[in-house]
Amino acid sequence: MANSFSLTTFSSSSSLFIALLLIFSAAASAQLSSTFYSTSCPNALSTIQAAVQSAVANEKRMGASLLRLHFHDCFVQGCDGSVLLDDTSSFTGEKTAGPNQNSIRGFDVVDNIKKQVEAICNQTVSCADILAVAARDSVVALGGPSWTVQLGRRDSTTASLSQANSDIPSPNSNLSALISAFSKKGLSTNDMVALSGAHTIGQARCTVFRTRVYNETNIDASFATSVQGNCPSTGGDNNLSPLDLQTPTTFDNDYYTNLVNKKGLMHSDQQLFNGGSTDSLVNTYSTNPSRFTSDFVTAIVNMGNISPLTGTQGEIRLNCRKTN
């Protein structure tokens, strides 16, 4: 009887503890709001939008680069602007991590946006929020959907080179590794497939797809030959090829059509359509662009909610490259 009583008491206490955790978690998440800057910096979003539009008009590829910065930020420590930090004497930043070195770009554009925002609202808008808004505005600038960005993230005071190396999915990942990497961040397989559609824009370096276009068999032969023209079997590591040959600067669903036709540029791309569990969803997206855009919007909002710093956590950086 005593044992039964203590088990019941333990169970009740555990339930209460879990409930409190869920309430606390929901409260932290609820601190993000689409109207977070409506009073403190009402022109923040329009300022960011104008700067992004200018940058993308100057170089179409920049839209994909800014979207990728948001992704690489959120997958390391959550969406906290850590990807923007330069190395210091006390920690090594994330820019030299394997998935980032000679790959992520757009820092100057972010610096320019931050400078413009600081000019109208001193130390009010976080670098993490700038990345989230710039990602949305980049997609819109390239013909993609818009969405309501949740705001109120604060900036981290440190970064994690080790987590950048371990948690950002590799272009050589198999399907199971991709599903696992996204699941680790609280994102579903559906989220993963939809977010991969960001590869409808942007370019990749020869070094990350060379093995696929020379050695893999689940690839359209003419496509492989055309890509090899700009990616020799040795050398030319930094030569670029569009992730979507058809419409490389338009945010559409051609990425999925390419996969169905075995024209995915990177190994990790084609893994989404290679006889596995995600084939049916890729088929759906390839024929139903509105379903893709709807699911992409849901997925990127979910991604933007990964472990944000809110309230008094972190800080609002004056310079996105360094802590205050």
Rank of each mutant, 00 (worst) to 15 (best):
V117C: 07
A204V: 09
V117G: 07
G235Q: 07
V109P: 05
R154A: 01
I219N: 01
G276N: 14
E118Y: 05
E94D: 08
G229T: 08
A221M: 11
A299S: 15
A55P: 05
D220L: 05
L131P: 02
M303I: 09
G93F: 04
N239G: 07
S166Q: 14
N43W: 07
S89D: 12
G143A: 09
S188R: 09
S12M: 15
L281N: 01
S12N: 11
F273N: 00
G275L: 04
M62T: 15
C79K: 03
F273I: 00
L195S: 04
A19T: 14
A44D: 00
N100I: 05
S25M: 09
S126D: 04
T323I: 15
P242Y: 08
F17L: 14
L7F: 11
G304W: 02
N274G: 09
N122V: 11
A64T: 08
N172D: 14
D279G: 05
V282F: 01
S25H: 10
C121V: 08
I316R: 06
I306K: 00
T158I: 13
I130H: 05
A141K: 00
L32W: 02
Q203Y: 15
D167G: 10
K95F: 06
V125R: 00
S11Y: 13
G197M: 06
A19G: 14
S222K: 12
P99M: 10
A64P: 04
T157A: 06
I113L: 03
N165Q: 14
G229A: 12
S176Q: 11
R153G: 04
L20T: 12
R317Q: 05
G311P: 08
T189D: 12
T323K: 14
T217C: 08
E118M: 09
V227L: 15
S166H: 08
N258Q: 13
V110I: 15
Y285F: 12
D269T: 00
N43G: 11
T293M: 13
V227Y: 00
A221V: 10
L32F: 04
V117E: 01
Y255R: 01
Q31C: 07
I300N: 12
N253F: 01
F273Q: 00
T257H: 11
V140Y: 00
Q77T: 13
D279M: 04
T8Y: 10
S126Q: 03
F209S: 00
T35E: 11
D87C: 11
